[in-house]
C-alpha cells in the first residue's frame, strides 16, 4: 500500500527570515492587511444594510490565501467556496469590483448578479465563489483535468473547509485525481469549525492532511497562520502537481475570527479561545514582527497601512456609487446565442 507522507511545518520566524526578502515581506503584509481592512469594511456595510443575504468574512485566515498565491504561476486556477473575498483579493482582483459585487451593483465582478458567494474572474483564473459545500472540490478537480488534458503545465488550487472535507464528492474526486494524476493542490482551510460544529464533533479522524491516504495522496499539515510556512508548503505541493505526480493535500491550520456569517453569534466557542488566537497567532502581527526585525520602520509600515486604507475606502465609495444593474440585466446571461 502506498503510504502518504506526513510532514508538519512549524513557525520559526527567526530561522526563516534569512530566506525571505524584505520585498516579499512587504508584499505579503500589504496583501494581508488589504484583505483584513476590506473585510472589516464589508462587515460594516452589511451592518448598514448595503450588503444583503450571507456574507462570510475571511478575517483571521489571510495568510492562507496570500501564502498560496505566492506559489502560483500565471495560468494556474483558483476555486473555493462562499468564503471567497480573501482569495479574490489575493488573486489580484480589483477591490472595487469585489466590493461592488457585495453591494449588488453593476460595477461588481458579476454585474451584481452573483453576490458575496458567487464571484468569478476569468482574467485572474478565479473560478468562484460556490455556495454548495463540497461542490468546488469536484469542480477544482475538473479544472485540473482540463490542465492535464491540455498538458499546459498549470495547477488547480482547490480550497475547501474542514466541514466540506466530509462531503462524499471530495473522496470521489480524490480517487479520480490520483488515478489520473491530475495537477491539483487541495487546500483544506481547517479553521476548526464548520458553522457551529467543532471539527472533532463531525470528523471521525481530525488529521485532515491524511484524508487522501487511502488513495495514496500525500498530505501535510501546515501552520496556516504563518504566511511563509504556507508559501513553502505551497511550493512543494505545486511542484508535485506540476511535475505530473498528481494531487497533493495541504491542511492549513487556521482560524476564523468572526462568526460563520454575519448572523452567527458564535456561542459554540469561548471569547477566551478567540482572544487567545488573536493575541498569540495573528497572521498579520506575525509578519509585522518580522518586518520590524528586518528593520522596516514604524513609519514605513504606517505608510502601507494608509495606502491600504485609501484603497479600501475607494472600494467602499465605488460600491455605493456604482449604479444598480439595469433592469434589462435580469434576462441576460441566461443563455448564449447558439
Amino acid at each position: 500500500m502506498a503510504r502518504a507522507a506526513q510532514k508538519d511545518s512549524k513557525t520559526d520566524s527567526g530561522k526563516k527570515l534569512s530566506n525571505v526578502s524584505r520585498d516579499d515581506l512587504l508584499k505579503y503584509y500589504r496583501q494581508m492587511v488589504l484583505i483584513r481592512r476590506f473585510e472589516e469594511r464589508a462587515g460594516q456595510l452589511y451592518g448598514m444594510g448595503l450588503i444583503g443575504g450571507f456574507c462570510h468574512l475571511y478575517i483571521g485566515q489571510e495568510a492562507v490565501a496570500v501564502g498560496m498565491e505566492a506559489a502560483s504561476k500565471d495560468g494556474d486556477q483558483v476555486i473555493t467556496g462562499y468564503r471567497d473575498h480573501g482569495h479574490m483579493l489575493a488573486a489580484g482582483m480589483d477591490p472595487n469590483a469585489v466590493m461592488a459585487e457585495l453591494t449588488g451593483r453593476s460595477g461588481g465582478s458579476s454585474k451584481g448578479k452573483g453576490g458575496s458567494m458567487h464571484m468569478f474572474d476569468i482574467e485572474t483564473g478565479f473560478f468562484g465563489g460556490h455556495g454548495i459545500v463540497g461542490a468546488q472540490v469536484s469542480l477544482g478537480t475538473g479544472l485540473a483535468f482540463a490542465d492535464f488534458y491540455k498538458q499546459n503545465g498549470n495547477v488547480s488550487f482547490t480550497y475547501f473547509g474542514d466541514g466540506a472535507a466530509n462531503q462524499g464528492q471530495v473522496y470521489e474526486s480524490f480517487n479520480m485525481a490520483q488515478l489520473w494524476k491530475l495537477p491539483v493542490v487541495y487546500v483544506i482551510e481547517n479553521n476548526e469549525y464548520a458553522m457551529g460544529t467543532a471539527l472533532a464533533r463531525a470528523s471521525a479522524t481530525v488529521n485532515l492532511s491524511q484524508r487522501g491516504s487511502s488513495f495514496g495522496i500525500p498530505g501535510e499539515t501546515v501552520d496556516g497562520m504563518d504566511v511563509f510556512a504556507v508559501k513553502e508548503a505551497a511550493e512543494r505541493a505545486a511542484e508535485h502537481a506540476r511535475s505530473g505526480k498528481g494531487p497533493y493535500i495541504l491542511e492549513m491550520k487556521t482560524y476564523r475570527y468572526r462568526g460563520h456569517s454575519m448572523s452567527d453569534p458564535a456561542k459554540y466557542r469561548s471569547k477566551e479561545e478567540v482572544d487567545e488566537v488573536k493575541t498569540t497567532r495573528d497572521p498579520i502581527d506575525h509578519v509585522k514582527t518580522m518586518l520590524q526585525q528586518a528593520g522596516v520602520s514604524e513609519d514605513d509600515i504606517k505608510t502601507i497601512d494608509n495606502e491600504i486604507k485609501a484603497i479600501v475606502l475607494e472600494a467602499v465609495e465605488f460600491a455605493q456609487t456604482s449604479p444598480e444593474p439595469d433592469p434589462s440585466e435580469l434576462y441576460t446571461d441566461v443563455y448564449l446565442e447558439a
Partner: peptide, 16 residues
C-alpha cells in the same frame, strides 16, 4: 418567478 436564476442585486431580485 421570472424564468431566470435568482439574481443577487436587490433591484433585480425584487423584479424576479
Amino acid at each position: 418567478q421570472e424564468d431566470v436564476p435568482m439574481p443577487y442585486a436587490a433591484n433585480l431580485e425584487a423584479l424576479t
